[in-house]
Amino acid sequence: MENLSIEVKLTKEPKVKPASDQLAFGTVFTDHMFTMDYTEGHGWHDPMIIPYEPITIDPAAIVFHYGQTVFEGLKAYVTEEDEVLLFRPEENMKRLNRSNERLCMPHFDEELALKGLRKLIQIDKDWIPKIEGTSLYIRPFIIATQPYLGVAPSKTYRFMIILSPVGAYYKEGINPVKIAVESEFVRAVKGGTGSAKTAGNYAGAMKAQEVAEAKGYSQVLWLDGKEHKYIEEVGAMNVFFKMDGKVVTPELNGSILEGITRKSVIELLRYWDIPVIERKISIDELYEAHQVGILEEAFGTGTAAVISPIGELSWNNANLTVNNGEIGALSKKIYDMMTGIQTGRLEDPFGWRMTVEL
């Protein structure tokens, strides 16, 4: 399958590109997209790059009724030398296949998908914004397309990649955000789909987000679904805490998404010889750490925002201010290093970057 040629059909009606300093997140899309189809018994076939356009799909398609869909998110950056860089894209394709496995969806050839992504970026390279804080957001996703109302895995699928020039994900930027500890809803449970990147996880999280935003918070801190005691994620991000000189993050347990930024931050901290521990962390432990003055920093990690510092946590009618509501020195150091590697401003000692040949 990796030897399949990718057909290219260029648009005859290029769009007007938005100004780089006016970009929001995920509201405009480039001229082209990558598509590939799967048919049971035939496998993946017909990889193409075509003009960005609406798709026609049967109303009975399984994706609409039983949520058989997975997705990824990554970014492309342009350097001062006009090189286009991707950050660990092979990790995204590996994770997409792991999500496929959990949702009973067929594996795809990761090299072919990366080939299609690189070709798509080559074609739409002029859409990559160049000012600081901007990037080209990349959304690969797969949907079940078979028209069938029986509860069973689809026999047909479509793989697509779309591109969107974006500004900062959070309007606060790198400034610390206020977070509410979620006391009613849960994001995922062990044995569920929390470790897969699938749409239902995000739909189920929206109510808690809505309630938190109405109260003036940027996001929620999720607790585990069984004991409602152990910290799992913050919003749609992994979460880290610096306590008494050590960095602690919840261990992967089957309900937490294995974030690529999370993985990179752990590797970076170990490279710096900063103690980092993956283990269970209870909300009571965090509260106690704050009370005795050893909760030094807290931050979320994810593709969209990279690092999102936490300045305040609200739990049980108590407001826990972290580092005087300011970004911590370690959070800033991680952010600067990560974005420096991603954008080509700094050396990449890990081999994380992939250059897109133009």
Rank of each mutant, 00 (worst) to 15 (best):
residue 316 N to Q: 15
residue 285 E to R: 11
residue 327 I to F: 10
residue 304 A to R: 04
residue 273 D to L: 09
residue 313 L to G: 07
residue 280 K to D: 11
residue 283 I to M: 03
residue 282 S to W: 00
residue 282 S to D: 02
residue 321 T to L: 05
residue 291 Q to P: 06
residue 290 H to M: 13
residue 331 S to A: 12
residue 309 P to T: 00
residue 322 V to I: 04
residue 292 V to R: 09
residue 278 E to T: 08
residue 301 T to Y: 04
residue 315 W to K: 13
residue 300 G to H: 06
residue 274 I to E: 14
residue 288 E to Q: 13
residue 324 N to C: 15
residue 284 D to G: 12
residue 324 N to L: 14
residue 320 L to G: 00
residue 330 L to D: 05
residue 316 N to D: 15
residue 298 A to H: 08
residue 330 L to C: 09
residue 323 N to F: 11
residue 297 E to M: 00
residue 331 S to K: 02
residue 301 T to M: 03
residue 287 Y to P: 14
residue 299 F to C: 10
residue 285 E to Q: 08
residue 332 K to R: 08
residue 298 A to V: 15
residue 283 I to K: 01
residue 277 I to K: 13
residue 282 S to L: 05
residue 283 I to G: 06
residue 287 Y to D: 14
residue 312 E to P: 06
residue 294 I to D: 02
residue 293 G to N: 11
residue 330 L to I: 11
residue 277 I to T: 12
residue 304 A to L: 11
residue 300 G to V: 01
residue 280 K to I: 13
residue 296 E to L: 05
residue 319 N to S: 15
residue 325 G to T: 01
residue 311 G to C: 05
residue 323 N to T: 11
residue 278 E to L: 08
residue 314 S to W: 05
residue 290 H to Q: 12
residue 288 E to Y: 13
residue 289 A to F: 11
residue 303 T to R: 08
residue 322 V to T: 01
residue 273 D to S: 09
residue 279 R to T: 02
residue 280 K to C: 12
residue 294 I to W: 01
residue 289 A to K: 03
residue 330 L to S: 10
residue 325 G to S: 00
residue 296 E to S: 05
residue 320 L to Y: 03
residue 327 I to T: 09
residue 283 I to D: 02
residue 321 T to G: 06
